[in-house]
Design a protein around this nucleic acid. Sequence first.
DNA 1: TTGAAAGCGATACCAT
DNA 2: ATGGTATCGCTTTCAA
Lengths: 346, 346
Amino acid sequence: MAVNLKQLAAELQLSTSTVSRALHDSHEISEETKKRVRALAEKLGYQPNPYASSLRKHRSKTIALVIPEIDNNFFTLAINGIEDIAQTKGYHVLIYLTHEDLQKEIAISTHLKSGRVDGILMSVTSETSNIDHLESLYKTGIPLVFFDRVCESIPTAKISTNDYESGYNATKHLFEAGCKRIAYLQISETLSISKKRLQGYKDAVSEFEGFTEEMIVTCSNSDELNVETIKKLMQHDNPPDGIFASIEKLAVSCYYACNFLNIVISDQLKIISFSNLSTAPLLAPSLSTITQPAFEMGKKAAEILFDIIELKPNDDFEKNIILKSTLVGRKSTATKKPDVSPANSY
Amino acid sequence: MAVNLKQLAAELQLSTSTVSRALHDSHEISEETKKRVRALAEKLGYQPNPYASSLRKHRSKTIALVIPEIDNNFFTLAINGIEDIAQTKGYHVLIYLTHEDLQKEIAISTHLKSGRVDGILMSVTSETSNIDHLESLYKTGIPLVFFDRVCESIPTAKISTNDYESGYNATKHLFEAGCKRIAYLQISETLSISKKRLQGYKDAVSEFEGFTEEMIVTCSNSDELNVETIKKLMQHDNPPDGIFASIEKLAVSCYYACNFLNIVISDQLKIISFSNLSTAPLLAPSLSTITQPAFEMGKKAAEILFDIIELKPNDDFEKNIILKSTLVGRKSTATKKPDVSPANSY
DNA sequence: TTGAAAGCGATACCAT
DNA sequence: ATGGTATCGCTTTCAA
């Protein structure tokens, strides 16, 4: 077993209190003693038991990250930002995946009331419409920050992007590329960000002449199923000539469906998608994207969370942080047929 | 604050021992009492303090996952497998990113000796050549399992793939596609998997006639720098006509470099890469890959780790698990010029 | 500057 | 079947 305070103290002929204080560099301990203590601690590889200390201090120096999935470039980049901040603050990160399953989100939320963590960063599942579990979690007083997939009605900090505007702009972009009939692909009807993106789409559709009908397609969690759904969509009597994918993976499914049906993207069908895909410029054809500042969002979310954790009781903090996404037009929405020249934009 | 055992006990007019046992469904507690206890616990939303329990039981029900980076499809899929098993076993997962920085790996290894976790899953950094910190960590007796980027000389369980064979096959594949001069791209000269892949490459190079020279290019951690390195490689007097990228991100950098230089992949240069990119079949041209069973590797690593954690002192466990990668040839190594027909293979 | 001792919350041994 | 109590390892108040 690892060495503990008591053993250190015994070896040094000191009390545990003195050793503890020495290791915390307390000013009420002589330099002399500190040196001796540190030397032995170093020599024996002493590591304080974090559970004993957490129990005593009611502080775990740990945060929870609750996200729907991990094989997703957005979350992956966000984690980089989160971990960056957590590491500099000396915090540990527990990761929980809900796999878009509301029941898992509920179970995790319930568990987190135990005090295992000092704060929680969360992006809710696509199924989360009933939010009793989140309200209950919020009420425990554990600092809670939502990012991207936020829960609007909980009065805590939220980091999101200009989703309405992005939805509007993406649709407008397709319109300007010559589309007459644009489909909107989503995975959820309840998510607040989904609704905002959709509203942007709807408003653009009603604003630009020639757009008479909305085509809203709600997909599933299965990529295979989604490819089939999109195939059917494209084999419709009156198929769309533009697709706005509100989620990266739906754009990938579109590409697969089009390849299967020999539909030439950009020529017969234009596609734009929310995406953080590093290979977007390299696809055939390169994919036009709305890219969220994922890393910055994760970073900001973590920063705000630590602000709240370290807050004095009556301090206040920023509740609604909106970062901006960037639209990058590429060949998938080009007005001319894609030529053979290479894609250079990163 | 959350309610604790003592308060439950007081409310129920029972001792804490009884309440604790009731909640653990001990056979020595009457059904009657169990019901009362559970009812109140439920009503008050009692959640046991995990730190108190960990302190007492010397068990944290937590494992650590230490990986070099997260924006990497291999690790992302592996995490899915790991989390899958951890969740069914009721374990929590702490995630630590080293960002390929040996110093961070050392700091994390040192910290993990504290007993914060019951076991560790690790994939070492590309810089890890001195392994004192890992040996020292191993010696503490905390169950440790390496996956993918294993540390050979530590006698614990390791999950890897048939890297030598894959390296050989990839090189052979390029040779059979007509390449005469094949470059090997890597990010590390010390990683055991890197060495094995390289040895496979070397052996194939020396075996197939026409191959006279090895071209080994060691890249950095920066994608921008790597693109420059590859550009230089291609602008060489005698540039390669085939590239074997031992890491996914290097293949992506190759595509960028070729686009920049107007080099037509598959025609002027053939590329094959280790990769778990979901968009490999959609790239221009579709990328030939050696794909590791990332999800299964994560799953297997976690399973073995829990086996070790739950082991009786003298039990033994499998030390060297090798799963197989799959080579999928696509247009980037096709012998004919890529045509316009779509990529259909997933 | 240092030490003694209480206590964080749950568990488990020893009683009854 | 239930209760009393020591204990896990560390922090912190109070005393010296």
